[in-house]
Structures are given as C-alpha cells and as structure tokens.
Amino acid sequence: MSDQSQEPQAPEEVEETPAVVPLPDEWQAVVGDLLAEGNSVDQGGLRRGVPELVTTPDQVLGLLERLRSLDEPYNRLTDMCGADLGDHLQVLYFLCQGYTGKLLVVKVNLARDGEVPTATGLWPVANWPEREIMEMFGMTFTGHPEPAHLLLPEGWVGYPLRKDYVYDREHEWTRPDPMREDPEQALGLEEEDSE
C-alpha cells in the first residue's frame, strides 16, 4: 500500500483521438493509493465514459472492497473476463452501481502464470467466471472454493483463449474433417492440371 501512484488515468468519452484524462479528484482520494504504479491508459480505454481503474493483483481485493463501501457503492459485479495482452494477462471486473446503469471497470494486470485473490468472498457470482478464466487463460485465483474446469472437459491441455494457444491434434476430441484439408481429394475428384 505504499505507492502513491503517478497520476492514474481514466479516459472520458473518446471521440476521435484517444485522450488521456487524469483520474477525477474524488476517485484519487478514495482509491488512489490502491492503483497500480505506472498506470497509463493510453489506448483510449473504454469509450462512452466508462471510468477504468488499473491495479495490481495484491491490491485488487482492497480496491473492490473499498468500491463496495462507497456512499454510492459499486456493489454489483456484473461481469468478469480475462484478456491476453501478449506479455501479460489481464482480469477485468465490471462493476455496476447498484441498479443504476453506472459502470466501472477494474483491470488487474498480472504475469502469464500470475495469481489473483478470488473475489468469491465478496460476490458469489465470481465463482463461475473465475473458473472459466482459470481454464481459458491459465492464471490462478487463489482461495477459489472449487478450482475445477467449468466449460472444458477435464484434462484439456492448454489454455484456449491465450493468443499463443495452438490447437493440438493429439488432443483432438472431434472427428477430423477431410473437407478442410483437401476437399477435392475428400470427394474423390481427381486433380487435373491446374491453370
């Protein structure tokens, strides 16, 4: 909790050029100390005025908890997903302010084999998304009550939603499709001379 980070930024409505807008003061006061160091959202961030906070794996639970106990709390976890950003992975928490339409995104950057504390203690809803992210991206949610595969069969090799995932035919579960390989041969049409 030491780092008073360098200007965490949350972009506002971006029209043409991605603008980097400093975090509003009220946000800075509430959660400024929990945000990641070197937090730069220079890709334009979420459009349509959705604020976004970037933090580190060890700060994320504190941040979520604090967001939950604001005067106007972001107390509804509406969605969670992961993303593979090449050199690191990312977990996104989409929070809603109760049942108003106000949305907030918390992003956690972590190494490719990194660990994030589970949010199931705060929201039981995080159970399935976390399991899905675990099996799809290969990160670990520490303290998760049942870290088994959710959508994929047990024993699946690799993490499919990673960018470097190669579908391994050794582990092919379905019938191979000759049509995709060589349709003419599959149909028994002989190869005549091409043009």
Partner: peptide, 26 residues
C-alpha cells in the same frame, strides 16, 4: 465457416470456376 472451395481457371475475362464446392454441412 470456410465452406466454399473454388478452383479457378482461365485468365482475364475468361476466368471461371473449374470446380466450385460448397459444404452445406458446414
């Protein structure tokens, strides 16, 4: 779905498909 496979033949205005396969199952 990549279910269309065309083998073209001919040049310029003469170009036409020699084989045209559509896998309706895909």
């Amino acid at each position: 779905d990549k279910c269309i496979h065309i083998t073209p033949t001919g040049k310029g205005k003469e170009r036409h498909p020699k084989q045209f396969l559509i896998d309706a199952g895909l």
